[in-house]
Amino acid sequence: MITAMRAVCPGSFDPMTLGHVDVVRRAAAMFDEVVVAVAVNPAKQGLFTVDERRDLIAGAVGDLPNVTTAAFSGLLVDWCREQGVGVIAKGLRSDTDYAYELPMAQMNRHLTGVDTVFLTADPAHTFVSSSLVKEVARGGGDVSAFLTPAVLDALRTKLG
């Protein structure tokens, strides 16, 4: 049985930014349980392993008793059906995110009945992405305003 009181916040989280943290915290206030699900894509090589990402996520939102982490591969909606998750919670930074996410949300609903809830990003995070954070950090820029201290330390360690 799928219950709407259980939600998933999916993503690659490579690494988890404060924008991600904000979305997870807001979803945790809305739903009884939130699973932060890390996408496993064998075709993509992340900077952090899936286990490292899950550990960093747990560190960033571990104070929320109703939030757990998981990993998934394949179609998210299949994982949702298997896990009894009825809602996908996604953050939107811009109209570009909306244009990308809306058809996916409609397809997910068509395939399995799983609904998507969009949470608009805090304006302080609308320009931040994991990819941009990594690019700036690789170039020696200061990304401390966009990451938790633990994620920042892990990123610096990875990048040397």
Rank of each mutant, 00 (worst) to 15 (best):
I2A: 08
V38M: 07
T96I: 13
L56M: 05
R93D: 04
V136Y: 14
V85C: 06
A99E: 06
V21C: 13
S73M: 14
T116R: 00
A43M: 10
V67C: 13
H110K: 12
D95L: 05
D63Y: 07
L47R: 08
G139M: 10
A70G: 14
N66K: 05
V85T: 05
H125L: 15
V23P: 00
A71K: 04
P103T: 11
A4W: 03
M16E: 06
L47A: 08
G91F: 11
G59S: 02
P10M: 13
A71Y: 02
R81S: 09
V50I: 11
I57W: 05
P123N: 14
Q83M: 15
G84D: 15
R26M: 01
A137L: 04
H125P: 00
A71W: 07
G86F: 12
V40C: 06
V143W: 06
F118Y: 14
D122L: 15
L47I: 15
V35S: 05
P42M: 09
P42A: 08
D63H: 07
N41G: 15
R109S: 13
G46K: 04
H20L: 03
Q106G: 10
D97Q: 13
T49N: 07
Q83I: 01
S94I: 12
A99V: 05
G19Q: 05
D95P: 05
E135N: 15
V85G: 00
T120S: 11
P15M: 14
L18N: 03
A145I: 09
L155R: 00
F146K: 02
T3R: 15
D22L: 09
R26S: 01
Y98K: 01
L102N: 09
V38G: 00
A28W: 03
G141L: 03
R53I: 15
V50L: 13
N66T: 04
T112N: 02
S94Y: 10
F13R: 08
S12A: 15
G19F: 13
T68I: 14
V136Q: 08
N108A: 09
A7I: 08
M104I: 14
T96W: 01
V24R: 03
A4P: 12
